[in-house]
């Protein structure tokens, strides 16, 4: 019998690093050379299937990268189970911005949040400003997942979302079964299936550590 889980994922990072392109590649396997800047936050869903017939449904909030809207970001990353912080490997300043985001998440977001650092625009590796070593070292220090992707070619995109899915605490559905139909999110540890709820799900479950 297959099992399905649902998680809230948020994309953060400086403007024009390719957050929306990553999502577009992941959700629809498409790429636009000329994408307009996101002024707002887009909501999308995509499901990944893991080896053991487990499926993970991501509810993705793709947020605006512009500084002007920074104060609204917490509204979108609150209650998030995972975050993908994106930088552009051809812009060293974008990694600095990513560090800021990661510090903010570590301070403000749910303590159990899974954070992935993602260097995008791998297709432009010739103009690379951020070395793999530098980013990887930082990620290791902070205990983050790290990878490089190209939304344009699709390289590494599905992989990073799949890796995140594997990292998330997957509670056996039968454990969350009792009274589930009428129960609130409290009965479903680690699975944020109730996006209407203002309460914080995703509390780490002892049996899943």
């Amino acid at each position: 019998m297959s099992k399905q889980f649902q998680f809230k994922l948020v994309l953060l990072g400086e403007s024009a690093v390719g957050k929306s392109s990553l999502v577009l590649r992941f959700v629809k396997d498409q790429f636009d050379d000329y994408r307009e800047s996101t002024i707002g936050a887009a909501f999308l869903t995509q499901t990944v299937t893991l080896d053991d017939q487990t499926t993970v449904k991501f509810e993705i909030w793709d947020t605006a990268g512009q500084e002007r809207y920074k104060s609204l970001a917490p509204m979108y990353y609150r209650n998030a189970n995972c975050a993908v912080v994106v930088y552009d490997i051809t812009q060293s300043a974008s990694l600095e911005k990513a560090r800021t985001w990661i510090r903010e998440l570590q301070r403000q977001a749910d303590p159990s949040i899974v954070i992935a650092l993602c260097g995008n625009k791998l297709d432009l590796a010739a103009r690379r400003q951020v070395s793999q070593e530098e980013a990887k070292k930082y990620a290791e220090e902070e205990g983050l997942m790290w990878t490089e992707t190209s939304a344009k070619t699709g390289e590494g995109v599905t992989e990073i979302f799949t890796e995140i899915a594997k990292k998330l605490p997957l509670t056996a559905p039968s454990a969350a079964r009792a009274g589930a139909r009428t129960g609130g999110p409290a009965t479903r540890t680690g699975v944020d299936l109730n996006r209407q709820s203002g309460s914080a799900p995703g509390q780490p479950d002892a049996c899943n550590c």
Partner: peptide
């Protein structure tokens, strides 16, 4: 900032 929410879709920001 105003947030215009498209039902079942995107939030748009207006500064």
């Amino acid at each position: 900032t105003l947030i215009l929410h498209t039902m079942l879709g995107k939030d748009h920001f207006v500064s």
